[in-house]
Simulated scan of single mutants.
Amino acid sequence: MERETHVLREATPEDVHLMLSWRNQETNRQASKTNHEITTEEHFRWWAAVRSDPSRRVLVYVHDDRPCGVVTFFDLRLDGPRTGAWGFYLDGDGLAKRGETLPAWLGVMREAVEYAFDGLHLDRLNGEVLAHNTAVRQMNRRFRFVEGTPRQEASDGREITVIPISLSREGRRHR
Rank of each mutant, 00 (worst) to 15 (best):
M139S: 11
V129L: 03
F143Q: 06
R124K: 14
F117A: 02
V136W: 04
A116K: 01
L130S: 03
R137C: 08
R144E: 12
E147I: 07
H121T: 07
N126H: 14
Q138R: 15
F145V: 08
R137M: 13
A116P: 04
N140T: 04
E147P: 04
R137V: 12
R142D: 10
N140W: 03
F143G: 03
G127P: 03
L130W: 08
R137G: 06
L122C: 06
F145S: 02
H132F: 14
T134I: 14
D118C: 11
D118I: 01
L120T: 06
R141H: 15
R144F: 11
Y115I: 07
F143L: 09
Y115F: 15
L130Y: 04
V146K: 09
L122N: 03
E128M: 07
G127D: 09
A116F: 00
T134R: 15
M139A: 14
F143T: 08
Y115K: 07
R144G: 04
L130G: 01
E147Y: 06
M139W: 07
V146W: 00
N126W: 09
D118E: 15
D123W: 02
R144P: 00
F145R: 04
F117Q: 02
L125I: 08
E147W: 01
Q138S: 12
T134V: 13
D118V: 06
N140S: 10
E128I: 10
Q138V: 05
R144V: 07
G119R: 05
H121D: 15
R124L: 02
Q138M: 12
R141I: 08
N133W: 03
R137S: 13
N133E: 12
V136S: 12
E128F: 09
V146A: 06
F117K: 02
A131M: 06
H121M: 10
N126V: 05
A135Y: 14
H132R: 13
F145T: 05
L125A: 06
G127K: 01
N126D: 12
N140L: 10
N126F: 14
Q138A: 15
L120V: 05
L122P: 02
E147H: 13
